[in-house]
Design a protein around this nucleic acid. Structure first.
Length: 942
RNA sequence: GCCGGGGUGGCGAAAUUGGUAGACGCACGGGACUUAAAAUCCCGAGAGAGCCUAAAAACCCUCGUGUGGGUUCAAGUCCCACCCCCGGCACCA
């Protein structure tokens, strides 16, 4: 008989006991099996939501499992406490951001404690506290001294509502990440951290990290490495334009050059232009557009720079120069060579502006039905293939040849001096007699195909250009009898133009061009129209082409330098002052922390509120002298969170940002758990900080996080994202008050695997069902009797203990909970269970339901705290079953099962299987093949 | 569009990495207790046929892990093609 329990009483008693025992204060200096478990610290918004519970309660379970296994676990907590909401509260309600923040922290501490989480509160860090940001500032000055922080003018994203600069990462679809306002572009002098210097190492470092593919790939995409080359295009009388391209192999096909509107050369060339007016109004119009408008409009616009031309360094041809906003000023050199035949964007632009399209890479099709015959002569031909449609019947012209039994389109060689269309018309007339044809279009560039031409007994390599005609009428001249004897003319519907019916290996590519009108070929192949490189593989020729035209092989990254200046009050002041000449100087360590002034006006003006502080100005003058001026901007809050895991090791140290000995012992963080939204920003920044500080000999490791897991998302009961407007928000405080923290903890662990992102709807019956489970455990403890453990009890405990250990390490706490439930089911079937066994059970339960476990531990006569008692180590032989059930199959189909020792011999298994009629029958007939996997399966194959 | 992750009962999910598919839980059905209900406890359950029956159960058979093919004694798991959902990136040359 289960009884209800008063979770309030049990929880407060347990927490009081832990506090008295000081159970969760980690001694970081004792070196026994240190394990650093980190979870992203929260922003003190003032209210703990269910997502926080999911983040902290489930990781707490794992911290407790590790501790129970005898390890010294560091599981710290703190607050990422600088940020916009505090300032908004100040602007809107006239509150002091500091007071607002600390009040929220106070409130959230209480809520976090209601989880029963085993945080070591003595190591709490608060990023807005001067004792913390002093070291954020100090680290910034170190980066500055080593050239990793620099000040430069740059076009920056500006949010007109928040009156601040945004990092690229904070712009989502051209809108401010926070308030959704469309962002503008402004040119300001700003502080940057030079993360791009670490692009390659940030990329390489990923290779050896055991993270999930989706995390690594997201970071790789963010870094966006591409190998290519710089090529220089001479401009008539104006030096050169340097372009970046990943496809230098296509330079022979570059038919124009495009500059981004921001490109400095546009201004320089302006005086030489005959259409300077048009060009400058285009550039101005682009500037006025938001990022969003620019990318929304997929129609490619642009203006030719009339009066200047560029010279293609490969062909020496003069080609036009354009300015167009489909080229980004911020990537590569801000200029591209346009190869419309082999680049989708250039193709769109060329079509729109009627620019020449020159094909230089041919796709390759080898006819596997008709491959080259070794030893035969190889004959090369340039040919044309004509697709002719009769619009009246909607059928296509094919020839059925007799000698090799082929069905083909009209096909033939292009003769000296002939163009593609003339050759095609001639061949159509000769082979089919039709003469009134309307040219529709040429289907892209030539295709390189290889096949064996049996009628000529030669291996053929053909460069085949396909041309598409429609029949104007079916007037035809009679065929030459010799020609007519060779083949017969037929008309077939489109559906019959398949690889089965036609002999062209290049059919797929031709039909796709016909159907989609998209002639761009971006793949690899054989070069053509490329001078000395004709016939070579484009990949293999890449290096030589770059060399031959004096280009420079290089690598480009999508990653940009990290803009850290914010025109905000509630952030870490950038520790810099300017001398009378305006040169920046790092503030010396003795003046740190460089305090945030308090005499400021928060009203947004487009400038940092710090600029309104009289105290800051006089402070600078007093310390540095007359004429010296302060830096008014504050740091992006991502800077604060890029090193907090270092501070946790030595949070109160007044003389250093962390302790070198402790860093050596505890780093890297063993496991870091957080939200997938931080994969590309926070985690990348923290990795960058670690590498940079490692290079300055300040941090012993090169990578901060050994393991990184992104947790899933808790959805509302309706499967939708929780939001106040949808009315599907679950308030953890209410659920906890009703059912108790332990039930909520178990439910969150049980809801799904924690080692993968995903979304889990909140099931309303979920928490009560876990409560029921807890009450069944209580009932079982009440019933416990006797001091002698039975063998099955010990086996069950050993197995469950092993399962929790294994599943915990994979962060699959859902199946760990299931194993506890399974064991309880077993115990209930064999009730009563001995007291030592129930004590063992309560130990295994303790990480999941720490309060009630403490209560039961006392009730069962356990000494001290259950959380101070490491799990007993169960002998390995308890894990192996003496007898297992294995399936018996006949020809792979299950016919029954037998009970047998896991190490039984094949003979014993077969003997046992004779009891199963189907198996017995199979064993009797002839010589069955036996597949026996001990402990798993017996398969009889007849 | 590109990259990544997925698709298993009514639902959340398991499956030792090729070896009894659906553990564990929710919801559901039946029963016990109760004057009754709630709570609790016991039993059942992927789908479908067959057999036995007054009806059921046991039992046995077939099908079954998005779709279609393949490899294998054996496929949720491996290979090929395709469909759908989720996440990231997206005019990055």
């Amino acid at each position: 008989m289960a009884r209800s329990y008063d979770h309030r009483e049990v929880e407060s008693a347990a927490r009081a006991k832990w506090k008295k025992l000081g159970l969760y204060t980690t001694d970081v200096t004792s070196g026994e099996e240190p394990y650093y478990l980190l979870v992203e610290f929260p922003y003190p918004s003032g209210d703990l939501h269910i997502g926080h519970w999911y983040a902290f309660a489930v990781t707490d379970i794992y911290a407790r499992i590790r501790r129970a296994r005898g390890q010294n676990v560091l599981f710290p907590i703190g607050f990422d406490a600088f940020g916009l909401p505090a300032e908004n509260a100040a602007i809107r309600n006239g509150l002091d951001p500091k007071e607002w923040t600390y009040r929220n922290i106070e409130r959230m501490r209480g809520q976090l404690e209601s989880m029963g989480a085993s945080f070591d509160w003595s190591r709490e860090v608060i990023t807005c506290d001067p004792s913390y940001y002093q070291w954020t500032q100090w680290l910034f000055t170190k980066l500055f001294e080593h050239g990793l922080a620099e000040r430069r003018a740059a076009p920056v994203k500006w949010c007109p509502k928040d009156q601040t600069v945004l990092a690229n990462e904070q712009v989502i679809d051209g809108r401010c990440e926070r308030c959704g306002t469309e962002v503008e572009e402004r040119n300001l002098t700003q502080w940057f951290l030079r993360i791009t210097q670490y692009a390659e190492r940030l990329l390489e470092g990923l290779d050896s990290l055991p993270w999930r593919a989706e995390i690594k790939d997201a970071q790789r995409a963010w870094i966006g490495k591409s190998a290519g080359a710089y090529l220089d295009f001479a401009i008539s009388g104006h030096g050169t334009i340097r372009v970046f391209t990943t496809r230098p192999d296509t330079v022979f096909g570059a038919t124009y050059v495009v500059l981004a509107p921001e490109h400095p050369l546009v201004g320089e060339l302006m005086p030489s232009l005959t259409n300077a007016q048009d060009v400058s109004s285009y550039v101005e119009a682009t500037k006025r557009k938001t990022e969003r408008e620019r990318s929304e409009n997929k129609e490619k616009t642009g203006v030719e720079l009339k009066g200047v031309t560029a010279v293609n360094p490969a062909t020496k041809e003069e080609i036009p120069v354009f300015v167009a906003d489909y080229v980004l000023g911020s990537y590569g050199t801000g200029a591209v060579m346009a190869v419309p035949a082999h680049d989708e964007r250039d193709f769109d632009f060329a079509r729109k502006h009627d620019l020449p399209i020159k094909h230089v890479v041919m796709p390759v099709r080898i006819d596997e039905k008709n491959p080259h015959v070794p030893g035969k002569e190889v004959v090369f031909r340039t040919i044309v293939m004509a697709i002719v449609r009769n619009p009246a019947t909607n059928r296509y012209l094919v020839l059925r040849t007799k000698k090799p039994q082929w069905t083909t389109f009209v096909i033939g060689g292009i003769e000296e001096g002939e163009d593609v269309e003339t050759a095609a018309r001639r061949e159509i007339l000769e082979e089919s007699g039709y003469k009134n044809l309307k040219l529709i279009r040429i289907l892209g560039g030539p295709v390189h195909s290889e096949f064996f031409a049996s009628h000529k007994d030669v291996n053929r390599i053909a460069h085949n250009t396909t041309i598409y005609f429609e029949l104007e009428n079916d007037e035809a001249v009679p065929l030459d009898p010799e020609e007519a004897a060779k083949h017969e003319v037929d008309w077939v519907p489109f559906e019959e133009l398949t690889r089965e019916n036609l002999s062209h290996a290049e059919l797929d590519i031709v039909l796709q061009r016909l159907a989609t009108g998209n002639d761009v070929y971006t793949g690899d192949g054989v070069l053509v129209n490329s001078g000395p490189f004709d016939g070579a593989s484009n990949r293999e020729a890449m290096r030589d082409i770059v060399e031959s035209i004096g280009g420079e092989r290089t690598t480009n990254y999508r990653l940009r330098d990290w803009l850290v200046s914010r025109q905000r009050y509630w952030g870490c002041p950038i520790p810099v002052v300017y001398d009378p000449e305006g040169e920046p100087h790092a503030i010396p360590a003795e003046h740190l922390p460089w305090l945030l002034p308090t005499d400021v006006d928060f009203t947004p003006t487009g400038k940092s509120p710090l600029a309104s502080s009289e105290e800051l100005r006089t402070r600078v003058a007093r310390i540095f002298g007359e004429g010296w001026t302060p830096e008014y901007d504050t740091l992006d809050t991502f800077v604060d969170s890029s090193w907090y895991f270092l501070r946790y090791l030595d949070p109160r140290d007044p003389d250093d940002f962390s302790d070198p000995k402790l860093m050596k012992r505890w780093l890297p963080v063993d496991r870091y758990s957080g939200g997938s939204e931080h994969t590309t920003m926070h985690v990348l920044y923290a990795r960058f900080f670690t590498k940079a500080l490692h290079d300055l000999a300040l941090v012993p490791v090169d990578e901060p996080f050994e393991e990184r897991y992104n947790r899933g998302l808790i959805m509302g009961p309706d499967g939708q994202k929780m939001s106040k407007s949808k009315g599907n928000v679950i308030s953890p405080d209410e659920v906890v008050a009703e059912h108790g923290a332990d039930a909520v903890r178990i439910y969150l662990a049980f809801i799904g695997p924690y080692n993968e992102p995903g979304s889990y709807p909140w099931q309303l019956d979920g928490v009560p069902s876990m409560r029921r489970f807890i009450e069944r455990v209580i009932a079982q403890c009440d019933r416990a009797a006797g001091e002698v453990q039975t063998e099955p009890e010990r086996r069950g405990l050993a197995r469950t203990c092993a399962k929790i250990t294994e599943d915990g390490d994979r962060f699959k706490l859902n199946t760990a909970v299931a194993s506890l439930m399974t064991l309880l089911n077993d115990f209930e079937r064999h009730s009563p269970v001995s007291k030592p066994s129930m004590r063992g059970y309560v130990q295994l339960l303790a990480p999941f339901a720490p309060h009630v476990a403490e209560h039961l531990w006392e009730q069962l006569g356990g000494t001290g705290s259950v959380h101070g008692s490491p799990w007993p180590s169960y002998p390995r032989e308890l894990l192996a079953d003496a007898i297992v059930t294995i399936a018996v199959q006949v020809n792979g189909k299950r016919r029954g099962e037998i009970l047998i020792a896991p190490d039984a011999t094949e003979e014993q298994a077969i003997e046992a299987a004779r009891a199963i009629p189907g198996a017995d029958e199979a064993l009797r007939g002839g010589q069955p093949r036996i597949v026996y996997v001990p402990g798993r399966i017996l398969n009889i194959v007849v």
